Simulated assay, not measured.
Amino acid sequence: MTPVDVHQGASPVILGLPHTGTFVPDSVRERLNEQGRLLTDTDWHVDRLYDGLLAGVTTVRATFHRYVIDANRDPSGQSLYPGQNTTGLVPATDFDDRPIWREGAEPTDTDVAERLNAFHRPYHAALAAEIARVRAIHGVAVLYDCHSIRSVCPFLFEGRLPDFNIGTDNGRTCAPAFETAVADICAAADGYSHVVNGRFRGGWTTRHYGKPADKVHAIQMELTQASHLASEDPPFNYDPGKAEWLQVHLKEILTRIEAIASSLTSGGRP
């Protein structure tokens, strides 16, 4: 199993999918405990949710599970949200603070270094290459990082999350037009709630690549799984009816992002 799956397109938009993969090498799986083997914190069906919404889009998808190593964490191990509960580069617990490794089988520093080389770095090498390729074609690239999470995770945040969680690191990772357009579409989506730079301000991927001055814009979308799953509990089944309603708005978001990017290639202002 290769650590990353890439589908190249001609659009200025790139979809990042760091957390939909479920591959766990046997040598890692045998060290997970019963809770860990459930792979509960997967971004269930997010790749399916976005499939076909924007013609010509490039996708870069990690095939490995985030319990192997988290492709959306700083490779140095530095926390994205200092002072707040979160999970690390190689998580010790799940999103409910339950241990995921058998006692005595927790990953070592050597394990982390090996997984960085085998999984994390290949994913980001592929993502960086696609950003460079797309920017060379269009003069601009937009990375839209696709995520989902259970709507209620008391260990990570209080209460219930909005359905659309838009992250731009407080406006640093993209031109204002992108953030405004996405927020406006979400605000107008009947029956859904949204927030901009709330609990999720964009992970390491968004913050690392989003450099508007270099004509690379990045925005993270964290969806609640209640918006497209039949249940946020195992077996995390996809709900085609819910997904169809949600996809109307996601398609509008991607189409609008592409239009803004295209206006930049023709000399317009964001």
Rank of each mutant, 00 (worst) to 15 (best):
Val140Ala: 10
His217Gln: 11
Ala175His: 14
Ser263Arg: 14
Trp204Pro: 03
Arg66Pro: 01
Gln35Glu: 15
Glu232His: 05
His147Asp: 07
Cys186Trp: 03
Thr108Lys: 03
Lys215Ser: 11
Thr2Lys: 14
Ala55Thr: 11
Asn33Leu: 04
Gly139His: 13
Leu116Met: 06
Thr108Gly: 08
Pro25Cys: 03
Arg61Gln: 15
Tyr50Ser: 01
Val248Ala: 14
Asp94Lys: 09
Gly159Ser: 05
Gly171Trp: 04
Val182Gly: 05
Ile149Cys: 06
Pro122His: 11
Thr224Ile: 00
Arg29Cys: 05
Trp101Gly: 08
Gly21Asp: 12
Leu143Met: 09
Pro235Trp: 06
Pro240Met: 10
Pro240Glu: 12
Thr86Ala: 06
Asp51Tyr: 12
Ile257Asn: 06
Ile131Cys: 12
Gln220Met: 05
Asp163Tyr: 07
Thr206Pro: 08
Arg201Cys: 00
Ala226Phe: 04
Asn72Phe: 07
Pro99Leu: 07
Pro107Ser: 11
Ser11Arg: 14
Pro122Thr: 11
Thr206Ala: 09
Asp5Pro: 00
Ala126Tyr: 05
Val46Glu: 00
Ser76Pro: 15
Ala92Cys: 00
Phe164Arg: 00
Arg115Trp: 14
Pro154Ile: 09
Ser266Cys: 01
Ile185Cys: 12
Leu156Lys: 05
Val6Trp: 03
Asp190Tyr: 08
Ala129Ser: 14
Asp214Leu: 15
Asp184Ile: 03
Phe178Cys: 04
Tyr238Lys: 10
